[in-house]
Design a protein around this nucleic acid. Structure first.
Lengths: 197, 197
DNA sequence: CTGCTTTGTCAACACGTGTTGGCATACAAT
DNA sequence: ATTGTATGCCAACACGTGTTGACAAAGCAG
């Protein structure tokens, strides 16, 4: 299988087309025919190489958040590092409609939702775990972080709320970083926030 | 038109059924037939009384955020007031699948997205405007607030990320309030956060 | 009771969907 | 050149969709 078959080019074209369609339209509104048209081939090829619509989707939505390794980051720059990385990941339109696909589809497609849950449960929690001392706090902090990061992506890249789209990257990062930084290292829940320590 | 027609009961049944289906399945996956079945009537009635699928949706997604009047709230309790109200609005499952409908559908349906943009543009900005001095800052602050609030709803009530679902309301409100409070009254962008002021 | 409007059901349409099998062509091996 | 196989296209299927119109029953007006 390490040999390149003649069909690899078509396979790749299908995958690229599928990503574009899924990202633009979500799971339900994307049709096999549309994918095939964009790839410039026949719909039946999509079936042959990926088995079913769910098959293409699974292949297209195989995503890695590629979060930075927080262990090497100064403790007071965690928020900024994470948020800047996140924003750039979403901004870099080219190859990264992956995240759009996942988020768009996760809202109506239970398979995609489960996948997203897994990815966030694993990758974000792992990143957070390298930073938080008390293991019992990890899920809570990871959840709060997810709340802000996904909300940011949702408003800016999916819903395209004008004021959020209008924000320049630096202002955005500066504002949101503080939040994420606190969710990572600050007090959570009902603890006093301005304590002496 | 103030008189109650005989068909009002059916109309109401259709609307209730539509809300349930749209909230559960989103716009695309909800079928006229499913709505009719849930309402216990014939699919053609849905068409007769609401014209088209888009018509039913428009009627079902006519939503009012009912944000509290921030003018009467002490300045340092703004975040908590807003967030608690928001969480309760989403928690109160009964009549309020309205928000689920809107958010779920806005991700794939452009009409719904536009509606959500309008609602947030108007209602949130208005609420924020009663609190912020500099009018130029209103959109930015409203946008940031939307980011966190919609992200919260997304993770907790749509995607159901386990750690976010697991959080009890008080912890949630306590943690997120601080963020919203800062987006409303704190420094934004690249200003120094701990300045001498 | 006789007519007329309203409320509802039934059956069907035109269309788009995922999916399948058959058939031509281009390539690879002998 | 002659096989055998991989690659691609075409036509069709079975099904579910939004939507429409004809027709029956129920309520009301005269």
């Amino acid at each position: 299988m390490a040999f390149t078959k003649r069909s690899d080019k078509t396979r790749a074209a299908i995958l690229a087309a599928a990503r574009q369609r899924f990202a633009a339209d979500g799971f339900e509104r994307t049709t096999i025919r549309a994918i095939a048209a964009e790839a410039g081939i026949d719909p039946s090829m999509v079936m042959r190489y990926y088995g079913s619509k769910d098959g293409v989707f699974a292949a297209a939505a195989d995503v890695d958040l590629r979060l930075p390794d927080l262990a090497t980051v100064p403790r007071d720059e965690l928020g900024e590092t994470l948020v800047r990385h996140w924003v750039q990941r979403w901004e870099g339109g080219l190859s990264d409609e992956l995240l759009v696909i996942l988020l768009r589809s996760a809202i109506t497609n239970e398979t995609a939702a489960e996948k997203l849950r897994t990815i966030f449960g694993a990758q974000v929690a792992k990143a957070v775990a390298t930073v938080v001392d008390d293991p019992a706090e990890v899920p809570t902090r990871a959840g709060l972080v997810a709340t802000q990061m996904l909300g940011l992506a949702l408003c800016r890249d999916i819903l395209r709320l004008p004021p959020v789209v209008a924000l320049d990257v630096d202002t955005l990062v500066a504002s949101v970083s503080v939040t994420v930084q606190r969710y990572l290292t600050g007090p959570i829940g009902r603890e006093r926030s301005g304590g002496p320590a």
